[in-house]
């Protein structure tokens, strides 16, 4: 096993799947010669040619709409949206079309496809290069929403997403691309969609997070351990379908729940996790559920102090855990 960056996991997954299955194609802005603005697809056009690694004209609805057509006619497209902030022009194609094609055709048609997009802040991306858009798509049956937090999961989950028979939105935290390093198993290893990951077991509280926040939660748990607090950390990994079983089982062990996400507070993924706990494990709780999230402002400001204030971080997570235990 070699230690790699998270973005290496993404690239390797696409590389291996394109080698394994000639139906797999990649399309998006600057994914060819440039190898993607983050270099996620570096080298792919040289390996598979510009018919399968397609520099798309600049238009997100077009990228997703064309990918749907490809999927309807025997290809397995990976559509890259350069930044998740720019996915909104494709919302109609994703929500009205990709998500509903199997259902509305009574299983006559389906669209095996992946829509990849870097999301999240902490990179001085300002309002339009920092957004977390996952909650919009969690509300749409027919879609799957996956967010890896480690290089191994990035690779294994993306491989699983490419092989999935339904449309998968695959959001990659852009700050984690080269910040997060970890061991990646060699060979063809997939990670199942729909299963949360136990990051570390604990007995005093459960911290539920995903993406970069799962890493931060792990770091917070290290700090808390030194104070004698045993925090369990669960990386949700898939937000739709949500692994409700893992959430309820963890709360049954620890009796306290802290949910962390960078997306803004109201109607974020945490609301669904909290509702799941309230419905399924209320009597297990020793304290109210706590959500730590981005503030309810339109987007993340560019300047350093305000950006830092927007982002949850290990210190804020540890503090929220202490407060929860004091209740």
């Amino acid at each position: 096993m070699a230690v790699k960056n998270l973005i290496d996991g993404i690239r390797e997954a696409m590389h291996e799947e394109m080698a394994r299955d000639e139906r797999v194609v990649l399309l998006g802005e600057d994914v060819g010669k440039r190898g993607g603005v983050f270099r996620a697809s570096e080298g792919l056009v040289d390996a598979y040619g510009d018919k399968r690694v397609i520099d798309a004209p600049l238009g997100e609805s077009g990228i997703v709409g064309v990918a749907i057509g490809m999927a309807l006619n025997g290809l397995v497209p990976i559509a890259e949206i350069q930044f998740a902030d720019f996915i909104h022009p494709a919302f109609n194609q994703i929500v009205s079309e990709a998500a509903k094609i199997r259902y509305r055709s009574d299983n006559d048609f389906h669209v095996p496809m992946v829509i990849r997009a870097p999301f999240g802040g902490g990179v001085h991306g300002g309002l339009y290069h920092s957004q977390s858009v996952e909650a919009f798509f969690m509300h749409v049956p027919g879609l799957k929403v996956v967010i890896p937090s480690t290089p191994a999961d990035a690779k294994g989950l993306l491989k699983a997403a490419i092989r999935d028979e339904d449309p998968v939105l695959f959001f990659e935290h852009k700050r984690s691309y080269r910040l997060v390093r970890g061991e990646v198993p060699d060979g063809d290893v997939t990670v199942p969609i729909g299963k949360a990951r136990m990051v570390r077991e604990g007995k005093d509280l459960s911290i539920f997070a995903y993406g970069l926040m799962a890493l931060y939660a792990e770091q917070a748990a290290d700090t808390l351990a030194k104070e004698g607090i045993s925090a369990e950390v669960i990386d949700l990994r898939t937000l739709l379908p949500l692994d409700r079983e893992a959430i309820l089982a963890s709360v049954a062990r620890t009796h306290r729940a802290l949910i962390v996400h960078e997306a803004n507070y109201t109607m974020g993924a945490g609301a669904e996790v909290a509702a799941t706990i309230a419905e399924g494990a209320l009597y297990e709780l020793d304290a109210p559920i706590r959500r730590l999230a981005g503030p309810d402002i339109p987007a993340m400001p560019f300047n350093t102090p305000q950006e830092e204030h927007f982002m949850p971080n290990p210190e804020k997570i540890a503090q929220a855990a202490r407060e929860l235990l004091a209740l």
Partner: peptide, 27 residues
């Protein structure tokens, strides 16, 4: 929509199908 006759399933938001035709032709 009728798979057997190569009629691709359609929706109510207009014009989405035009992009699908392009992706089908690309394949």
């Amino acid at each position: 929509g009728w798979r057997e006759r190569h009629v691709i399933t359609g929706s109510s938001p207009v014009t989405t199908q035009v992009l699908h035709a392009v992706g089908i032709a690309y394949a």
